[in-house]
């Protein structure tokens, strides 16, 4: 079972890295999304996979029954999903804004930061 998950995570991460290496802004973003879901899956598997009962204390009892699931990895994943969602939506908005102002999502067209204060800009007068 673990091996199946391992291959699934590996495949997903591979796709994520491949998309991340692209020049297209949206593909980069989707690559990030794939990588972070693969990571969530990794945490899930790392937390241990077993057939267990839900970690809920039954009425009348004071402690958890034996063989219940570990709730912590799920809490971690939930946190990671929420944070990842916020960041990816922010990044998507950023990409959209850039597309509107630069007119392209290709990173090869995004040269404005590099041009700002470039040392190779010969127009500036040297010691006039």
């Amino acid at each position: 079972m673990n091996l199946v998950y391992a291959f699934a995570i590996a495949a997903q991460m591979g796709c994520g890295v491949y998309l991340l290496l692209s020049r297209h802004g949206m593909r980069i973003l989707i690559g990030i999304v794939l990588l972070s879901t693969a990571t969530n899956l990794l945490i899930f598997v790392a937390g241990g996979l077993r057939f267990t009962a839900p970690p809920v204390i039954e009425p009348g009892l004071q402690v958890l029954a034996a063989e219940t699931a570990n709730a912590l990895p799920q809490a971690l994943i939930l946190t990671a999903i929420v944070i990842g969602f916020a960041l990816v939506s922010f990044a998507a908005a950023l990409m959209l804004k850039t597309y509107r102002s630069v007119g392209s999502v290709l990173t090869s067209d995004h040269v404005d930061a590099e041009a700002l204060g470039s040392p190779f800009d010969r127009e500036a007068p040297r010691n006039a």
Binding site: G25, L94, T98, V102, H110, A113, E114, L116
Partner: peptide, 10 residues
């Protein structure tokens, strides 16, 4: 929100 800033931010 200048172009250079958006580029750098990405």
């Amino acid at each position: 929100r200048t172009r250079a800033q958006l580029d750098g931010a990405i």
